[in-house]
Simulated assay, not measured.
Amino acid sequence: MRSRRAFVSSVVAALLMTVPGCGLLSGNSTDTPPSGPANARIRLGVIPIVDVAPVYIALRKGYFKDEGVDVELKQIQGGAAGVPLLVNGELDVTFGNWVSFLAAQAKGAADLKFVADGYRGKPGMFLVLAPPDTPLHTAADLAGKKIAVNTRGNVAELAVRAAMKAQNVDPGGVQFTEMAFPDMQAALQRKDIDAALVVEPFITRAAQQIGAVTVLDTMAGQAEDLPIGGYATSAKFARENPIVLDAFRRALTKAQRDASTRSEVEAVITDYAKVDKSIASVLHFGSYPNSIDVARLRKVVDLMRANGMLTGDVDPQAMLF
């Protein structure tokens, strides 16, 4: 009798390991999370701005390591710059703005999947700045001026266009010019540009060091909580590495939750963004969401269409990993 029970038990165990959906990597167990990958690597594109603070929190606290993922950081100028690097395989995942991701998908320039949300707008953290002696004071004054954005056709340009239109000002004559965020302060001082769409920590640094003034807050009013950026990968990498991406996302989500505590963000930006503690303590932060809100992304699509920045159809729901 004991021999028969032992035989039956061994058969059942063997079946459980071969039936689809069972086993340690299926992710269907409600008792424990899916097992992470072993020694997997992700080459991640990042920008030295507060938006990506959770990445550095996760590295500092060992969240990626706990999930079995080795994250290698690659510096990029903006979200648009990360897209071709995903396509040609130089990056596995990149932080970027939703506008660049959606535009690339609509144009057929890339086939992308959204891995995680990253940052949403709040007043004071996405500002059009000008030198202290500027004659520019309102949205109307920006008409026809030269305004720097980190990359063309991205969320920064959309934010300026949408904010101007919201105040009944035609942005059509604005001369948008590409410039890396760290270079904007000096360009304002030299009067190479009339204004710049600046993010933190560069907003507070420019205000303290050169007396830069705010001309337009692009995240005020209806634009508050607008999705700014997140993390995307190529559809090819997503198909081939679903377990790795799940592990990456679990670690990042933990860090996104931590970033809701201001001191957690301040602790890392003094290092990777080279921000003095005195500046870090007064920065204006957006919010770090834990999940992607498709309804909000569809509002971004609507804004892109209204401002002539979308040339094809795109459905954020279909782009979710």
Results as ranks from 00 to 15, higher is better:
1 M>R: 14
4 R>L: 15
4 R>T: 14
5 R>N: 08
8 V>H: 01
10 S>E: 14
10 S>H: 11
11 V>G: 10
11 V>I: 15
12 V>S: 07
12 V>E: 04
13 A>V: 04
13 A>L: 14
16 L>M: 14
19 V>G: 11
21 G>P: 10
22 C>K: 06
27 G>C: 05
29 S>A: 14
30 T>Y: 05
31 D>S: 13
32 T>W: 10
32 T>E: 13
33 P>R: 13
37 P>G: 10
39 N>K: 10
40 A>F: 04
43 R>E: 00
44 L>F: 08
45 G>K: 00
46 V>H: 13
52 V>I: 15
53 A>E: 07
55 V>E: 04
55 V>N: 03
58 A>E: 07
61 K>L: 13
63 Y>I: 04
67 E>S: 03
69 V>K: 07
71 V>I: 14
75 Q>W: 04
82 G>P: 08
82 G>D: 11
83 V>H: 03
86 L>H: 05
87 V>N: 08
88 N>A: 01
90 E>I: 02
91 L>S: 09
91 L>N: 08
96 G>W: 09
98 W>H: 15
102 L>V: 00
108 G>I: 06
108 G>D: 02
108 G>H: 04
109 A>N: 15
111 D>C: 05
112 L>D: 10
112 L>Q: 04
114 F>L: 15
116 A>E: 10
122 K>H: 12
126 F>E: 12
127 L>T: 09
128 V>I: 12
129 L>D: 01
130 A>V: 11
130 A>D: 03
132 P>G: 03
134 T>K: 11
134 T>M: 03
134 T>D: 04
136 L>R: 08
137 H>E: 10
139 A>Q: 03
142 L>G: 07
142 L>C: 05
143 A>M: 02
145 K>T: 10
146 K>Y: 02
150 N>Y: 06
152 R>H: 12
155 V>Q: 13
156 A>C: 09
161 R>L: 04
168 N>G: 01
169 V>D: 06
169 V>C: 01
173 G>E: 14
173 G>K: 08
174 V>H: 08
174 V>M: 10
176 F>Y: 15
181 F>D: 09
186 A>V: 12
186 A>D: 08
186 A>G: 05
190 R>K: 14
198 V>Q: 02
200 E>R: 13
201 P>A: 02
204 T>F: 01
207 A>F: 01
210 I>A: 01
214 T>L: 02
217 D>N: 05
219 M>C: 11
219 M>E: 08
220 A>L: 04
220 A>W: 00
221 G>W: 06
221 G>F: 09
228 I>F: 12
233 T>W: 07
234 S>C: 11
237 F>H: 12
242 P>T: 08
242 P>A: 06
242 P>L: 05
244 V>G: 05
245 L>S: 08
247 A>G: 06
247 A>Y: 10
248 F>E: 07
249 R>E: 14
251 A>K: 04
255 A>P: 05
256 Q>S: 14
256 Q>T: 09
257 R>C: 01
260 S>N: 15
263 S>W: 11
264 E>Y: 07
270 T>K: 03
279 I>P: 02
283 L>W: 03
284 H>Q: 13
284 H>D: 13
285 F>W: 07
285 F>K: 02
288 Y>A: 08
295 A>Y: 01
300 V>Q: 06
303 L>M: 14
306 A>K: 12
307 N>E: 11
310 L>R: 07
315 D>E: 07
316 P>A: 05
317 Q>A: 15
318 A>T: 10
318 A>S: 15
320 L>C: 00
